[in-house]
Simulated scan of single mutants.
Amino acid sequence: MARKQLIRSLPADWPVNISQATNGREGLEAIRQGLGQVVLLDLTMPEMDGYQVLQALRDEGLQAKVIVVSGDVQEAAIQRVMELGALDFIKKPANPEELLAKLKAHDLLSLGGAGQDEASLQTQAQQAALAEMKVGFRDAFREITNVAMGRAAALLAKVLGVFVQLPVPNVNIFEVGELHMALADAQSGERLTAVCQGYIGDGIAGEALLIFHDSEVADMARLMKWKLEGEKAEMELMLDLSSILIGACLTAIAEQLDSHLSLGHPLLLGQHSPIEELIRVNQARWRKTLAVEISYTLEGQAIHFDLLLLFTEDSVARLSHKINYLLS
């Protein structure tokens, strides 16, 4: 979906050939083969992320004009890619007017060397490529979540004064038993506290579950300059962090889908409990669910927490409708 949105944002009369890569390693190999005079580079990718691609370009002396297009909008992320040699940064989803302005500012529109007839054929080929790109629901929703995840991370980075490392989100449809097994395997033996916050609006509903590892609460308090004096202070700390992450992430998802979600009050599902107990207490509510998993890790800290967005089964049809409109 990210590639389809970006291709649609390119200037229609720009006489260039377009090559696509599904991950950083493929992209780097294409550049080595001379296919990337201008590179529009994502950061959060499988195999090899955007930072690693930029470092490899520098190490190998490859001449490519790189503009980063990413949902990771942390100030530190933008600074890092510029230090690694990127010409510019555009936040996702790319705005055609902004992309055109950046290409002009760096004199990249003049790199296309084709004549008008060939440019017309290339435009037709571009449109045909777009028509052939079939984007499935999970891929599309993963990209929407990727953008939302980046915005939430930017807020978290400001609050904690750290850099937040972002993974590719996982999107799956689970029966409650499968969800139970997936979570239990991931958090085996951990003592956890979870904060749950419901949301509803425009035919979409569900619950967000933010899972904290008890061993890391004191470290988070130190970063936020909180004094932990008893369980009440711990609870307030976790509820505050939950409001930042859950609120920012769901708001960004709703904006992309042209919807509005109302959030309930965050609630502690349990303190110092194994994940199996948290699931057992709530499995009647979750049943079959669209589950989005995001793991936030704080660079240089032994801290990470997991955000699960659990959409009701009835929400999937509405989300599919919204996504199809986006892609049309």
Rank of each mutant, 00 (worst) to 15 (best):
G50V: 06
G177K: 12
T44P: 00
T289G: 01
V176F: 06
C249D: 08
L41G: 01
V176M: 07
G198A: 08
E178Y: 06
Y51A: 02
Q20Y: 08
Q20L: 15
P274H: 12
L40K: 04
L41K: 06
A148V: 02
L267D: 11
A128R: 13
P96A: 07
V69H: 05
D139I: 03
I204E: 02
G36C: 11
D42M: 05
Q124H: 10
N172D: 15
A105V: 06
Q52R: 15
Q122E: 09
V53W: 03
Q63C: 09
L43T: 00
D258I: 04
N282M: 09
M133D: 14
E190K: 13
L166A: 04
L84H: 04
D139V: 10
G27I: 03
L326H: 03
A317T: 12
V135R: 07
A218G: 03
V68I: 09
L108M: 05
R222M: 10
L209W: 15
G112H: 04
K4N: 06
L290G: 03
R222K: 14
L319R: 08
S110P: 00
Q116M: 14
L290N: 03
C249H: 14
L10S: 01
G27T: 05
L192F: 05
K288R: 15
E299K: 11
L108I: 04
G198H: 11
A148L: 06
A218C: 03
G230M: 02
P15H: 05
I246P: 03
I279C: 09
A208S: 15
P266E: 03
V171C: 05
P266I: 09
H265I: 14
A157Q: 05
L109H: 09
F163I: 09
I67L: 08
N146G: 12
M82E: 09
A184M: 11
L241K: 05
L307Q: 08
P167I: 04
L100N: 12
K102W: 05
M48G: 01
